[in-house]
Design a protein around this nucleic acid. Structure first.
Length: 585
RNA sequence: GCCCCCGUAGCUCAGCGGAUAGAGCGCCGGCCUCCGGAGCCGGGUGCGCAGGUUCGAGUCCUGCCGGGGGCACCA
C-alpha cells in the first residue's frame, strides 16, 4: 500500500535528519501519517515536525524543513511524490503524482472482491461470539443488533487478515429452559381440554401456544396421561429443540451464519464448571462465605465479589461463563471477542477479572458492548413486554422491512449510540434511510454498464495507460474516496467499529453520484469512455465490497420509484443479489 | 449512592490529539435534447457547562448538569 511506502520514506528521512537535529534515531516520539481533511493540504500529511520539535529543542517548522530536505534528496519510494511542503504550524504536506490514483483503480480491478482486504493473513485466530440469545423465545430487534454487529465485525476482522470463527452459545439448560418446557406443557394440556395450571412465571408469548399446537398435532393426546416426570422431560427437550430450530431459521433468513454452535449443556457433564472453580481456587481467588463459593472479583477491579456456587449447590451463570472462557482459551484463539448488549455490561469486569485470575492475557479478550434498541412505529413507541410476550419478533420485523434495510440501519450506527428503530422510517425508501442511497448508486452503475453493453460499446481489457484519461476533479475525487477502503477496514477492525464501513459506503456513493453528474460515461471519445467505464466498474466493486462487509446486498437493479416518489413499493421484496458473491465483474 | 454509555446544525447521526468540525432529513433556490432525478449544485459561525493536560482538545483527565443502561446466591 502506498501509505506504507510513504511511511518508510519518511522514517528514512527522519533517521537521516536526526543527527543534525540532535535526536537519537533509536528513541523518537511517535508521529502520524494521515489524510488531511482539506484537499489543499495534499494527499497525505504528517505531524512529525510537531511531534519531534520538543525533543529536538527546535521549532516544529524547522524540524519539518530539515526532514523535508532529506526527503527531497530522493531514495526508495520517492518516485510517487509530486511535491512536499511545510505548512501551518509545522505539518509536512505531501502531494502525490496523479498516477497514484490510477494505481488505486488498478488495485481495485485486480483484487476484485478482495479489494479492501489485507493481502497477507495475520496468521492469527480470533473468535467472535455473538447473538447467544437464550432459546426460550424468538429473536427480537435487540438481538438483531447483536447479530448485525457481530456478523459485520467478523467480516471486517476477516478482511483485516484474521482467521475468524463465529460462535453461538446456547444457554440451553437451567431454570429458564425448564420454565419454557413447563409453559409449553401447560399450553398443550389446555389445548386438549385439560384444566392445567399455567406456571407462575411461565412464558406468555403466543409462540408458546404455537409450539404446543405443533406438538399436539404431531403427538396427539398421548402425553395427557403420561408419567409426569417423563412428560416434563419430553416438553423440555421438545421446547429446546424447536426453539433452537426457530432461532436458527431466523438467523439464516437474516443472513447470519455461525461456524460453531456451543451448548452450555456440554459444560456441566464434562465437569468443566467444577474444574473452572477449582482453577480459580488454586490461583487463590476463591473463598467460602454464607454457604456459597465466591470469586474475589474485587481484586481485579470489580465492584463486588461474585458468587460461583450458590448455597444450594448450583453453579451461577458466572461460573458457567468462566468454564466457557477456559474452553475458549483451550481452543487456541489469539483473541476473543464478546458482543454484548448494554444490559450485560456489568458482567464484563468479573469475566475479565476471571481471565486475569486464571493467568490469561486480559487484553486478548474484547467486549463490544452496544447500546439498546427501542422500537417505534411512526414516531410512537412500540411497547415490548417480556412478561406478556408482547414483543415484535425479528421474523416479523423482517417481514416488514426486509433484511437489507434492517441490517444497514442497525450496522450504520456506532455501538455506543442507542437506536430508536422506527419501522415506518426504515421501511420507507427515502434518504431517511441511507441503505437505498448506497444501493441505488450500485444499481445505477450496473445500469450504465448494461447500457454500454447494449450499445455495443466494448469494454476492452485495461492497461495502465487506460486510466491516464482520468483527469477531471470529480474522477480523481472518486478515486481518492475509493482509495480509502483498505484503511477504513483496518480502522473498523482495530476499533471494533463496523459502522465505519457504512460511512465509507455512503461517501463512496456520493462521490460516484457526483462523478456521474459531471462526467458523461459513454461518449464518442473511445479512450475516455473506456477509462470512465472502468472507473465505474471500480466504484461498483468497492461499493459491493463495503456492502458485503455489512451483509447487505448490492443490487444490479432496483425498482424505479414512480412519479412523486412517495409511493414506497414493497420494501421486503427488494433487491436480493447477494453482495458477498465474489463472482461478479 | 456506585459503575458503564451518551450529550455535536431545527431533527437523526459521523468524526482512533491536528490546520477552516462533516453527512442525511427538513427548509429556500437552481440543474434533465443524452448513460437510472431514489441523483447533482448552492444556501450553515453547532461540539451541554466549568476547570485541567497538550505546541494543538469535539476527541484525553476532573467536577457539575441532562438522558439511557446496569448494580442478584436471575439468566
Amino acid at each position: 500500500m502506498i501509505r506504507d511506502d510513504l511511511a518508510r520514506a519518511l522514517a528514512e528521512a527522519v533517521a537521516a535528519a536526526a543527527p543534525a537535529l540532535g535526536l537519537d534515531p533509536a528513541d523518537l516520539p511517535a508521529w502520524d501519517l494521515t489524510r488531511p481533511r482539506q484537499k489543499e493540504h495534499g494527499d497525505w500529511t504528517t505531524n512529525l515536525g510537531l511531534a519531534l520539535a520538543p525533543k529536538a529543542g527546535r521549532t516544529p517548522r524547522s524540524v519539518a524543513e530539515a526532514v523535508v530536505e532529506h526527503l527531497r534528496a530522493g531514495g526508495p519510494g520517492r518516485d510517487l511524490i509530486a511535491s512536499v511542503e511545510v505548512a501551518g504550524p509545522g505539518f509536512i504536506n505531501i502531494h502525490l503524482k496523479g498516477a497514484w490514483l490510477h494505481d488505486v483503480l488498478r488495485a481495485i480491478l485486480e483484487r476484485g472482491p478482495a479489494y479492501g482486504s489485507r493481502e497477507e493473513s495475520r496468521g492469527l485466530r480470533v473468535q467472535v461470539e455473538f447473538v447467544s440469545a437464550n432459546p426460550t423465545g424468538p429473536l427480537h430487534v435487540g438481538t438483531a443488533r447483536n447479530a448485525v454487529i457481530g456478523d459485520a465485525l467478523a467480516n471486517v476482522l476477516a478482511a483485516d487478515g484474521w482467521d475468524v470463527e463465529r460462535e453461538y452459545y446456547w444457554n440451553d439448560t437451567g431454570t429458564q429452559m425448564e420454565n419454557l418446557g413447563a409453559s409449553i406443557e401447560a399450553r398443550y394440556l389446555q389445548r386438549l381440554g385439560v384444566d392445567a395450571p399455567f406456571p407462575e412465571s411461565g412464558y406468555q408469548g403466543a409462540y408458546v401456544g404455537d409450539l404446543a399446537e405443533e406438538i399436539a398435532a404431531e403427538a396427539g393426546e398421548r402425553w395427557i396421561r403420561a408419567d409426569p416426570e417423563e412428560r416434563r422431560r419430553f416438553f423440555l427437550d421438545e421446547g429446546r429443540r424447536r426453539m433452537i430450530a426457530n432461532v436458527r431459521s431466523t438467523l439464516e433468513r437474516f443472513g447470519v451464519s455461525f461456524d460453531t454452535w456451543f451448548s452450555e449443556g456440554s459444560l456441566g457433564p464434562s465437569g468443566a464448571i467444577d474444574a473452572a472453580v477449582a482453577r480459580l481456587r488454586q490461583a487463590g481467588h476463591v473463598y467460602e462465605a454464607e454457604g456459597a463459593t465466591f470469586f474475589r472479583a474485587t481484586a481485579f477491579g470489580d465492584d463486588k465479589d461474585r458468587v460461583l456456587i450458590r448455597s444450594n449447590g448450583e453453579p451461577t451463570y458466572f461460573a458457567k461463563d468462566v468454564a466457557y472462557l477456559i474452553d475458549k482459551f483451550g481452543r487456541d484463539f489469539d483473541r476473543l471477542v464478546y458482543v454484548w448488549g448494554a444490559d450485560h455490561h456489568g458482567a464484563v469486569a468479573r469475566l475479565r477479572g476471571a481471565a486475569q485470575a486464571l493467568g490469561y492475557d486480559p487484553s486478548s479478550v474484547d467486549f463490544v458492548v452496544y447500546q439498546l434498541v427501542s422500537l417505534y412505529r411512526g414516531g410512537e413507541p412500540v411497547r415490548m413486554s417480556k412478561r406478556t410476550g408482547d414483543v415484535v419478533t425479528l421474523d416479523e420485523l423482517l417481514d416488514e422491512v426486509g433484511p437489507d434495510a434492517a441490517r444497514y440501519t442497525l450496522a450504520a450506527r456506532s455501538s455506543d449510540s442507542p437506536i430508536d428503530f422506527d419501522i415506518e422510517v426504515v421501511t420507507r425508501q427515502s434518504m431517511d434511510n441511507p441503505v437505498f442511497y448506497v444501493q441505488y448508486a450500485h444499481a445505477r452503475i450496473a445500469s450504465v454498464l448494461r447500457v454500454a453493453a447494449e450499445r455495443r460499446v466494448e469494454l476492452r481489457s485495461w492497461t495502465p495507460a487506460t486510466f491516464e484519461e482520468l483527469t477531471e476533479e470529480a474522477e480523481l475525487d472518486l478515486l481518492r474516496k475509493l482509495a480509502e477502503l483498505p484503511e477504513v477496514v483496518e480502522q473498523a477492525a482495530e476499533l471494533s467499529a463496523p459502522n465505519r464501513i457504512a460511512r465509507f459506503a455512503e461517501e463512496a456513493a456520493t462521490a460516484f453520484h457526483r462523478f456521474y453528474t459531471e462526467c458523461r460515461v459513454i461518449t464518442e471519445d473511445d479512450a475516455r469512455t473506456q477509462a470512465r467505464l472502468w472507473l465505474s466498474a471500480g466504484a461498483k466493486r468497492a461499493l459491493a465490497n463495503a456492502l458485503g462487509l455489512l451483509g447487505v446486498s448490492a443490487p444490479e437493479s432496483m425498482e424505479r420509484l414512480g412519479g412523486d416518489g412517495d409511493s414506497a413499493p414493497d420494501a421486503g421484496d427488494g433487491p436480493s443479489t447477494p453482495a458477498a458473491d465474489p463472482g461478479g465483474d
